[in-house]
Design a protein around this nucleic acid. Sequence first.
DNA 1: GTGTTATATTCAACATGTTGAATATAACAC
DNA 2: GTGTTATATTCAACATGTTGAATATAACAC
Lengths: 193, 193
Amino acid sequence: MSLKHGLLGLLNYAPMTGYELNKEFNGSLGYFWQAKASQIYRELDSMEQSGWLTSKRVVQDEKPNKRIYSITAQGKTEFLDWLSSLDPLKNLGRMKNAFLIRVFFGGELSREQTLELFRSFREIILEQSKQMQAVKDEINSLTPDAGYDSNKAVYWKLTALSGEIMYKANLEWVDKAIEILENIAEESETKNR
Amino acid sequence: MSLKHGLLGLLNYAPMTGYELNKEFNGSLGYFWQAKASQIYRELDSMEQSGWLTSKRVVQDEKPNKRIYSITAQGKTEFLDWLSSLDPLKNLGRMKNAFLIRVFFGGELSREQTLELFRSFREIILEQSKQMQAVKDEINSLTPDAGYDSNKAVYWKLTALSGEIMYKANLEWVDKAIEILENIAEESETKNR
DNA sequence: GTGTTATATTCAACATGTTGAATATAACAC
DNA sequence: GTGTTATATTCAACATGTTGAATATAACAC
């Protein structure tokens, strides 16, 4: 139930339309949880039915009508309960990593093919880690004016730090893996001479 | 489509029943991709309908009947195509991390509450990293007899190495986070004196 | 002038994942 | 003797996630 609660948390800051939420989401939570706009709208619907939100339709002339969502008292309770509960932590930490499934079956490919996979993967991780770094710099450059809240910023920085450390570790692993595979390739070449 | 292809890869080693596949899965791919038995049975059904598998029903006296699945030529092609394709890599690397959603909203809780969250999270990660370590030791102790295949083992070791490095990085982050939060707590205490 | 982006949803169809109940017997643990 | 584990699926219901089409206008870029 992370997406619903993430949206609830954003609406806890201020009422918003689905469109605005989608943008907010992509600029913050989106770095560690992905969701399409169509999913967000559907979740908002279901949250309203649960009584966590209310919505007001605003008629506009020149643009499509919009619907502004606000969190209810019940929604706030739900959000804070979820946020502070130690229970759902148990399911966390278990990582899902589709690339490792392919690595696991690497023996079915040639060494050149697996090396190519690893090199492509390396580029993707490197690209993402650069984006992460940019976000980190942005957060660190926030100044106490313009809605800056040092208490919130501490936690935003911690999420960016996690991204930084995890990408670094992933790169370290890819590099080690490439090195190992290249050495094996060389060894068998030497043998074949 | 990782689960289907993961199961395909296991059936590429040998024909198996859903029950056996579930056990195999939990002892290997399950470390980086989770699936319930009921999901596995359903996927097998759908894979058979796609022509990737065939199944044979085996009647047993004392135990429930079982169904043995075998990979087809079409299934093998599908598996190898998936394994070597560079295309699906693009969606990878994007991490989903439900704990970070909660960290992001840490400002809504008291410092003691967030510290409690981090400490609980630390225990969970530590526990999982120990399990990972046990698996790593197991793989490393494999010897060339008993179905050991040094080419496969290289890749199994690489998956275990990834787990090791990622858990280590996650622990490094949690420790840093706890340190940061404790220092802030102290500072505000000092101010309040 | 032509194409793209921003605005603001809604909808359908399908894929993937979770929870838990139901069935039935043998073997092993305490 | 009583409870748990292993064997071997099947099923229903629901939750979550993905893909892509549909609608309509204004503003900006080249």
